[in-house]
Simulated assay, not measured.
Amino acid sequence: MDFERDDKDLNNPRKVDFDDLQNEVAGRQTGRQARFMPAGEASPEAERKKREAERAFRTQLELLLPDPAYREKYNSVMDALQQAEQAIQAVLDDLTRMIRETEQTIQDMEDNAAKLPDGTLVFRDANGLVRRADGSVVEDHLAETIIWTGNEPGYEDYRSAQDRIDALKASQKETQRYRDNTLGPARDRMSDEDNPPSSDELDGILGTIRQEMPKAVKEHTTENPEPAPAAERTTDISLPSLGG
Results as ranks from 00 to 15, higher is better:
69 A>S: 14
61 L>S: 03
61 L>W: 02
63 L>D: 12
75 N>Y: 07
80 A>M: 07
85 E>P: 00
76 S>V: 02
63 L>Y: 08
82 Q>D: 11
83 Q>W: 01
77 V>N: 00
77 V>D: 00
63 L>W: 07
58 R>G: 04
72 E>S: 15
79 D>L: 12
69 A>N: 13
85 E>A: 05
68 P>Y: 06
82 Q>M: 11
81 L>W: 01
56 A>E: 14
76 S>F: 02
84 A>R: 00
78 M>D: 03
82 Q>Y: 08
67 D>C: 09
56 A>G: 08
68 P>S: 06
61 L>Q: 03
75 N>Q: 13
79 D>C: 06
82 Q>N: 14
77 V>T: 01
85 E>I: 01
68 P>K: 06
58 R>L: 11
60 Q>K: 14
70 Y>N: 06
86 Q>H: 15
73 K>E: 12
84 A>E: 02
66 P>D: 05
85 E>G: 03
60 Q>S: 14
62 E>G: 10
79 D>T: 12
68 P>Q: 06
61 L>K: 02
69 A>K: 13
64 L>I: 04
83 Q>R: 03
69 A>Q: 13
86 Q>C: 13
59 T>D: 07
59 T>S: 15
76 S>R: 04
64 L>C: 04
70 Y>Q: 09
68 P>T: 06
75 N>D: 14
65 L>Q: 02
58 R>E: 10
82 Q>H: 11
85 E>F: 01
66 P>W: 06
81 L>I: 02
80 A>F: 02
79 D>H: 11
65 L>N: 01
62 E>Q: 15
77 V>K: 00
78 M>C: 03
79 D>E: 13
77 V>I: 04
59 T>F: 07
68 P>W: 05
65 L>I: 08
64 L>N: 02
71 R>N: 14
77 V>F: 00
73 K>M: 12
73 K>R: 15
84 A>V: 03
76 S>W: 01
62 E>W: 10
73 K>A: 12
77 V>Y: 00
56 A>F: 08
65 L>V: 03
78 M>P: 00
58 R>M: 12
67 D>I: 07
70 Y>T: 06
83 Q>A: 02
70 Y>L: 09
86 Q>K: 15
66 P>C: 05
60 Q>V: 13
73 K>G: 06
65 L>C: 02
72 E>D: 15
70 Y>V: 07
64 L>G: 00
68 P>H: 05
82 Q>F: 10
57 F>P: 01
66 P>R: 05
66 P>I: 05
59 T>E: 08
80 A>Y: 02
80 A>V: 04
67 D>Q: 12
86 Q>L: 15
58 R>F: 06
57 F>Q: 12
66 P>L: 04
59 T>K: 10
67 D>F: 08
71 R>T: 09
69 A>R: 14
64 L>M: 11
80 A>N: 03
59 T>C: 13
66 P>Y: 05
57 F>E: 14
56 A>W: 05
